[in-house]
């Protein structure tokens, strides 16, 4: 059973056709990188998976659960899917640790000590346990993004979505976040990453997808994707980005 299966998905923003009759699926344990020019629908695609955007037509099934407008299906799917945002979206009034424990105590019924213990494990996992008591504003961008990854991991998701996780970072901080993602990949986590970090894509992705104007233009293994892409638009994109 695929972890994500999208069929004939359509999304409109007013007149703008953001996703055009899109078919897309990801297997358990698979790591997929999505790239493409801005406005191509990459973010919309992954935001549809956990219901942050609602699609206008088509079906989305996550781990056997069909995503519908009903809030219980949305909640079930969200409990399986972790998400990391471009702007981190950490809660600024809470410490790194509290960012991680909030959902554990409020929604999963853990006691504060249990939640703290679990959160510390994951903060340690992203090598930031020593900064646990700090507020997001006291951390660097790279550290904030690693806290955001730990926060998502605390809920033990089956699938992780990354929406341009390094695009808002200073260059010297990108690698620490990518290393964290690589180590997640090594543990066999299913991942869908929207990113332009093609070195990362080459290293960890099973498949690389190139999107343009709301459609999947290219869907290949990394070697094929970089060495001999089929579509002229992919070639053009690669020639621009791989200089």
């Amino acid at each position: 059973m695929p972890i994500v299966s999208m069929k004939a998905v359509q999304k409109w923003y007013g007149d703008y056709h953001a996703l055009k009759d899109l078919d897309f699926s990801v297997e358990q344990g698979e790591r997929v990188v999505i790239c493409g020019p801005s406005g191509s629908g990459k973010s919309t695609l992954i935001r549809c998976i956990n219901g942050l955007e609602t699609c206008d037509a088509g079906s989305i099934v996550v781990n056997g659960i069909e995503l519908t407008q009903r809030s219980d299906s949305v909640a079930k799917i969200r409990s399986l899917v972790g998400m990391v945002f471009q702007q981190f979206n950490l809660f600024p009034h809470l410490s790194a640790l509290e960012n991680c424990t909030l959902a554990l105590t409020e929604e999963l019924g853990l006691t504060q000590p249990q939640a703290d213990e679990k959160a510390m494990q994951y903060l340690d996992r992203v090598r930031i346990a020593d900064q646990a008591t700090k507020r997001p504003a006291q951390l660097s961008g790279g550290q904030q993004q690693r806290v955001a990854i730990a926060r998502a991991l605390c809920l033990e998701p089956e699938l992780m979505l990354f929406d341009e996780p390094t695009s808002a970072l200073d260059p010297e901080m990108i690698s620490e976040v990518l290393e964290t993602m690589v180590s997640l990949a090594e543990d066999g986590m299913s991942m869908i990453c929207v990113t332009h970090e093609l070195g990362f894509a080459r290293e960890v992705a099973h498949r690389i997808i190139f999107m343009d104007e709301g459609a999947l233009v290219e869907d290949r293994d990394p070697v094929g994707f970089f060495e001999h892409p089929d579509n002229p638009r992919t070639k053009k994109f690669l020639s621009k980005i791989l200089r």
Binding site: L52, A75, R78, F85, N89, L90, F91, A103, E107, L155
Partner: peptide, 16 residues
């Protein structure tokens, strides 16, 4: 809005 989105992604209830 990112704060709401993060809360939604963490499957928090509206009141929480």
């Amino acid at each position: 809005t990112g704060q709401w989105e993060a809360g939604n992604a963490l499957n928090l209830r509206y009141v929480v």
